[in-house]
Amino acid sequence: MAFPTDENVIVGLDRADDAGVYRVNDDLALIQTVDFFTPIVDDPYWFGQIAAANALSDVYAMGGIPKTAMNLVGFPIGEMDISILREIIEGGIEKMKEAGVVLVGGHSVEDAELKYGLSVTGFIHPDRVLTKKNLKDGDHLILTKPLGTGIVNTAIKGGIASPKVIERVTHLMARLNRKPAEIMSRYEVHACTDITGFGLIGHLAEMVLDSVNGIRLQSEKIPIIPEAQEYAQMGFIPAGAYRNREFRASMTEFAPSVDRFLQDLLFDPQTSGGLLICVSKKDSRALEKELKTDGVQDAVIIGEVVKNGGEKIFVQ
C-alpha cells in the first residue's frame, strides 16, 4: 500500500517505530501516538492509570515530552455501571497530571467489550528524535523495568497469584517512563524504545534488523519480577510469548547455560514495560547510576551492541 507522505515527516509509517514525528519548524517537531486496550486488572481506577501510562510511554521512548491527550473509550452501556467508566478516567487523569499532560478531549463509542486508552501529542526538537535505529558498536543497553508482566497477568487470570503480587505488578505497570526519559536526555543516547507486546527480544530484533550489528545480552543481569519465574515454570505463559519466540527464533542464539524459564521471560509480552535505552559505552555507567539513585531502581545495563553481529541476538 502506498501511504501519502511529505518532507516534514521525520518518523512515519515506512518504519515501524513507537510514534510518528512531524517537523513543525527547525526547533519543534510533534510526536503523535495512540494506544488502547481491554482491561488487564480488575480495578477500574488502576486500569485507567496503566492504560494512560502505556499510551504516554511511546512519547517518552522517542525522547519527547507529552503535552496533550485525548481519551479513547469503548464502553458496554447498559451492561456495565457508568461509575466504572468514571473511575477508569479518573485513573487516567491522575497519570496525565503526573506526566504534566492536559486532557483536551476524547471520544467514546458503545462497544461489546470495555476499552480505554489515549491519543497523545508531545513535543521534541527535530534533531533529538530517538528511534529504534542508529545503534553504534560497543553501545550499552539499559532496561528500566523488570520483565514478566505478561506471565504474571496470565497467572492472575488463572487465579494463582497472591494479592501482594497483583498489587506489585499493578504498580509496576502504572509507573510512568517519564523519569528515565528525562534523565537519559542528558546523556549520549543513540536509540530508545519501550518494551511492549513483542517482548524484550522482539524489540531488540527490531533494533538490529537491517543493520550490521548484533546484540549480546548478559542474561543474569536482566531484571525480572521474582514471582514470574515460578509462574513460568508452572506453565502460566501467555500464547503471545510463544508467538514472539517463533517469530524471532532464527535471530536468537541462547547459550546452553540459559535456563528455559529465563528464555520464556525474554519473549514475554509486556504491558507498559520499561524503556530500552541504547547509550554510548562511555556514558552508560553514569546513566545507570543516575537512574538508580533517582528513583528508577530497576534500571540496569543488560547487554551491548556488537560489531558484525549479523542481526543476531546472543544471550549468555
Binding site: 505463559i237 501467555p238 510463544y242
Partner: peptide
C-alpha cells in the same frame, strides 16, 4: 490443539 497450550501443560506437569 495449540502450541502454547502444549508448552504450558508440559511445563506444568514437569513442575
Amino acid at each position: 490443539d495449540n502450541e502454547a497450550a502444549k508448552e504450558n501443560v508440559t511445563r506444568f506437569m514437569e513442575h
